[in-house]
């Protein structure tokens, strides 16, 4: 956690060349590493502990919660009802952006250019057909579709509206909690290529982390035990907007307690 806080202290703050960075004071991240978390209010959102979550993962997270209680933190259940829609919203928005961000790889300015193109359209088609892999193409096509006229309102716009509801969900929880404790992934690692045939199954593994990106919140993932096969389980701590210091403090306390870490 010290490494994490050190790096964050260095990279945090306004970047004049990034309009999406904020001009707010950088918190004292190192100072946040007190090693204790007495009185902290930690929420366990029930939506993150459904039957879809691997029991080994659930047990590891719940044991982390027990450690927090033992250290004097208050742990209680909370609810994020909009979470069900986070994954859908995330894949619509991120694919839409990706389809546009990746459009510059058209063979004109730089990067891969297909050979033997007879005209401009051919250059665009061949370069992009040959240059991109399956998953990237899947997202470009999905993103292009949801931004198309006639579909924008039903998909992209709706996803953005959902995003607002998810943000409000989290904001409500942070009125009564300092941070949220969840699994990082509903399962431990699967074999390479095992889920490639079913992308939706693969996307579902992102369910615990994408909501954070959607909501614009700080989160960290730390190791917390292993499953029966010895594969690592991760817990995720989510903080309120700009409260990276709060989750660093909670994570460091767990790490010091011997529960976090390998």
């Amino acid at each position: 956690m010290k490494d994490c806080a050190t790096v964050l202290s260095a990279i945090c703050g306004k970047d004049a060349k990034d309009s999406t960075s904020l001009s707010v004071p950088t918190p004292d991240f190192m100072g946040a590493l007190t090693g204790e978390c007495k009185g902290m209010k930690i929420g366990l959102p029930k939506e993150y502990f459904s039957d879809a979550v691997d029991p080994a993962v659930r047990d590891a997270v719940l044991s982390a919660a027990k450690s927090y209680e033992a250290m004097g933190a208050e742990v209680a259940e909370c609810t994020l009802p909009m979470l069900d829609y986070a994954l859908e919203a995330y894949y619509l928005i991120s694919s839409a952006e990706a389809s546009s961000n990746l459009a510059r790889y058209d063979g004109v300015r730089y990067g891969f250019r297909a050979e033997g193109c007879k005209d401009l359209e051919d250059l665009f088609l061949k370069t992009r057909s040959e240059g991109f892999g399956k998953e990237v193409k899947r997202r470009i096509m999905l993103g292009t579709f949801v931004l198309s006229s006639g579909y924008y309102d039903a998909y992209y716009k709706k996803a953005q509206q959902t995003r607002t509801l998810i943000c409000q969900d989290f904001a409500r929880v942070f009125e009564s909690f300092d941070c949220i404790l969840t699994p990082t992934s509903p399962c431990t690692a699967w074999k390479f290529g095992e889920k490639s045939a079913d992308p939706v199954q693969m996307y579902l593994a992102d369910i615990c982390t994408v909501s954070v990106n959607i909501a614009g919140l700080p989160a960290l993932s730390m190791p917390c035990g292993t499953d029966a096969a010895g594969l690592p389980v991760g817990v995720q701590l989510i903080g309120g907007r700009l409260r990276d210091d709060v989750i660093l403090r909670a994570a460091y306390a767990l790490e010091q307690n011997g529960k976090g870490g390998r």
Partner: peptide, 12 residues
């Protein structure tokens, strides 16, 4: 053309 307009995410 379908220009697929959407809000520029890189700008506030």
């Amino acid at each position: 053309h379908d220009y697929r307009y959407f809000p520029e995410p890189d700008l506030a």
